Amino acid sequence: MTSLRVRRIVAGGVAAMFALTACDSGTDSAAPRQLSDSDRAAVRHALEAAVATGLAGVQVVVTEDGRDWTASAGVGNTESGAVFPDNAVVRVGSNTKAFVATAMMQLVAAGTVELDAPVERYLPGVVRGEGIDGNRITVRNLMQHTSGLPEYLELPELDVDYDVMLTQHHDAADLVQRALSTMPAHFPPGAKAEYSNTNYLLVGMVLERVTGHPVAEEVTRRVIEPLGLRHTYFPATGDLDLRDPHPQGYEPDNGKRVDVTRLDTTWAGAAGALVSTGGDLNRFFTALLAGKLVQPTQLAQMQRDTKPLTNRPAGIDYGLGLARLAVPCDAQVWGHGGSIPGFRTTDGVTAKGRAVTVVANQRPTDPTSTSALQHVFDTAVCAAS
């Protein structure tokens, strides 16, 4: 049994011994026309620099004018040396929240859910605990992380070996009940914004209560299927494997890489269980920000109601399932990001319509790797257009 621990397994928003390889998908004519040869060279250089910090592999997908350009460095499988596959299917962690928030905002537009209604209206008796009162916490508080609710990932029973997590099934309602009954509120509702995955387990539970359907079914029907996202899905119960083509996902453990590709993600649920690709994520965020998934009023609320997250790096203002991301150029970027055992993703769309997703098949654990991965995203976003 490996000693790898998996506490704090859904985040917000984050090797020299292997040959550094870069590959472009398609031909130059298929690449976004705004990316020049020098732009693509700069992105490839950033990819190679990220892998040189110790990451197994990194891939970027840039989507513009409906066309994708993909470049990768490192490997998708450290044993075989296979490259990071194009159109790689990966676990996208907290990007799930943006999909769930989109489905919820459709319900808001229909008048089925009120953002400023107390959670108690939809989940009577559920949101209770020390300093916790569902009559004072609104749906908006949950969606923008201003509820003050504790982090369910801090539960001792989730601080287990990877081999246990692999096959341990969890129920969202049970995780919420245990978290709220054993940990106090961090602050009064609305006092500040603190990222807590508990919020989105509850958003998913509200969605299920008012529709009568599982959150995975509602998100699939309302978001995934209308956009034709063929590689995006919630794993079914007992589905531990990723669909092909996929890289292996790795976690560092005592100087070694542990393959954590197979995983039961029922503990992540509406907070982070989704599987997708860079191309599908780009199409989702592009459609969302273009007003193709929610009404203008609801999209404006998702972007207007932003708060700086006090427990995340500076430069992330969180709205209702969307985050405004700081980049080193004058581009305005909205997106999200995700971290889950084996994978780290960062994604966003500029005001001019360039969508960028960066995927690593090993989560960075030090500032150097984290900065290098961010630099790949910044380079692709800020390339001349």
Results as ranks from 00 to 15, higher is better:
Ser369Ile: 00
Ala73Arg: 03
Leu325Gln: 10
Cys382Leu: 11
Pro214Met: 01
Thr211Phe: 01
Glu120Met: 05
Met205Leu: 08
Val61Asn: 00
Ala331Phe: 08
Met183Glu: 08
Ser371Gly: 00
His170Gln: 13
Gln298His: 06
Asn135Ala: 14
His45Trp: 00
Val206Pro: 00
Ala172Glu: 01
Tyr152Arg: 04
Gln34Val: 15
Met183Asn: 03
Gly93Thr: 09
Gly228Trp: 06
Gly66Ser: 03
Ala179Asn: 11
Gln295Pro: 02
Glu154Arg: 05
Trp267Gln: 13
Thr237Asn: 13
Val359Tyr: 02
Val83Phe: 09
Leu4Gln: 08
Ala101Ser: 14
Gly319Met: 02
Ala173Pro: 06
Pro341Val: 12
Met143Ile: 08
Glu218His: 06
Asp133Trp: 09
Gln177Asn: 08
Asp159Trp: 07
Asn282Leu: 14
Ala41Cys: 04
Asp24Thr: 14
Gly74Trp: 05
Thr167Ser: 04
Val6Met: 02
Asp244Asn: 13
Arg128Phe: 02
Ile9Tyr: 03
Ile137Cys: 04
Leu153Cys: 12
Asp68Lys: 07
Val127Cys: 10
Val327Gly: 09
Gln34Gly: 15
Val219Met: 12
Arg354Phe: 05
Val92Pro: 07
Leu166Met: 02
Ala323Asn: 00
Gly190Val: 06
Ser181Tyr: 08
Phe99Glu: 08
Lys352Pro: 11
Pro308Leu: 07
Gly131Gln: 11
Leu309Arg: 02
Phe99Arg: 02
Phe285Asn: 15
Gly348Met: 13
Leu55Glu: 10
Ala22Tyr: 06
Arg7Val: 14
Arg44Asn: 14
Ser29Asn: 12
Arg121Gly: 04
Ala271Gly: 14
Gln144His: 02
Ala271Thr: 05
Gln248Leu: 02
Leu309Pro: 06
Gly13Glu: 13
Glu154Gly: 07
Val51Tyr: 11
Val260Arg: 06
Tyr200Asn: 14
Leu207Ile: 10
Leu55Tyr: 01
Ala98Gly: 15
Phe343Asp: 05
Thr198Gln: 09
Val260Gln: 09
His145Glu: 10
